[in-house]
Each structure stands twice: as C-alpha cells, then as structure tokens.
Simulated scan of single mutants.
Amino acid sequence: MATWTDEDLDRVGRAEELQLASRRGDGTLRPSVTMWVVRAGDDLYVRSAYGPDNPWYRRAKASGAGHVRAGGVERDILFADAGADVHPDIDAVYHAKYGRYGPAIVGSVVGDKAVPVTIRLLPRA
C-alpha cells in the first residue's frame, strides 16, 4: 500500500480546503466538491458535515476511490474507514484549524455524530 510523503501530509494538512472527486463505475471522475481536510498523525481525513445522506459521502463510500487536490498536491486515493481511537485527535485538529468559524460550523464535523461519517484518505499506488 502507498503512503503519504511527509511533504504531502504537510501541504494537504495546511490547506484550507480540499477538492475531492469520487470515481464513477466507469472509472471517470465525478465533479469535485470543496471540503475541509485535517491531518491527524500520518493520515488525512474528511467528514460529511451533513451526515450519511450527503451525496458526495454516499458516492465516495460506494466507489471506494477518487482523486484529491489541495495545497499543490494531486493524488488518486482510496476511501477508507478511520480507526476508532483516532476520533478525539481528529476532533481536536478540526477545532484548532477551523475553530475561527465558530462552534455552530465546526460542530457540524466534530463529536459523536461525525464518527460514522469520517473518511480516511489513502494514497493510491
């Protein structure tokens, strides 16, 4: 399995937003959606602010693969589940990175309701 380089983790982790596109069944990319991204340890994560019925989230889970662009980095990726023990760290990074937007906004991507809609972004080989 491929891993993120330290430089890619730093660049994507510092980026304010990420462009994420999931793959269709025929392998082509869907249009990108703009979202927040956080780095926790040596991994990158995104969360669905509007729960499991958000269209981008459903498509990402169904396809399992996509493409991201952020901080000058472009990579084909796989969508994976996050480990159970990493969620407090993810919450802390969301608060630190995006807290200036206020608790109502950041609250949409932290806490217990965000756990099941967390996606770990894995670079594709």
Rank of each mutant, 00 (worst) to 15 (best):
V86W: 11
T5F: 03
V117D: 06
L121Y: 08
D10R: 13
A62G: 11
I77V: 15
K113A: 15
G99R: 05
D85E: 15
A125N: 09
V110I: 15
A65T: 11
R14L: 05
V38M: 00
A82E: 09
Y101V: 02
V106W: 03
G64F: 08
D112K: 11
L29P: 00
D85C: 09
V86M: 12
P116V: 00
Y94T: 04
I105R: 14
R100E: 07
S108R: 15
D53V: 07
A60P: 07
K97Y: 10
R59F: 13
I90T: 06
V33R: 02
L18N: 01
R24H: 10
E16C: 00
Y94N: 08
A40D: 01
V38K: 01
R58I: 08
S63A: 15
A62H: 04
R23N: 05
V37K: 02
D112C: 03
H67F: 13
L18E: 00
L29E: 12
R39F: 02
Y57F: 15
R23G: 00
S63M: 03
I105W: 14
R24Y: 03
V109F: 10
P31A: 06
M35W: 11
D26A: 07
A2P: 13
D91I: 08
A125V: 08
K61I: 13
R100G: 14
V12Y: 05
G25V: 01
V73K: 04
A21L: 07
S22Q: 04
L121A: 11
G72I: 03
L44V: 04
T34I: 12
P88F: 14
T118K: 06
Y98G: 08
V109G: 07
D112A: 15
G99V: 04
G102D: 05
R69T: 11
D43E: 14
A80H: 12
D89T: 11
V37W: 07
A2K: 08
P103M: 09
L78V: 04
R120L: 14
Y50H: 14
H67Y: 12
V106D: 04
P88D: 12
S48G: 07
R30L: 10
G107N: 06
A80V: 05
A65I: 01
A96K: 12
V117F: 12
D26E: 07
R30W: 06
V12E: 01
D53F: 03
V33S: 01
P31R: 07
T28W: 06
A70E: 01
K97H: 12
L9G: 03
D53H: 11
Y98P: 06
Y101W: 15
A60E: 07
D91T: 14
A84F: 08
V86E: 10
W56D: 00
G72T: 07
A21D: 07
D76W: 09
L78W: 13
R100W: 14
E74S: 08
G64W: 10
R100Y: 12
I105K: 14
V115S: 00
E74N: 01
I90C: 10
A40S: 13
G25E: 10
W56P: 02
G27Q: 09
R58E: 10
P116G: 04
Y57E: 06
R59N: 12
G83R: 15
R124D: 09
V109W: 02
P52R: 08
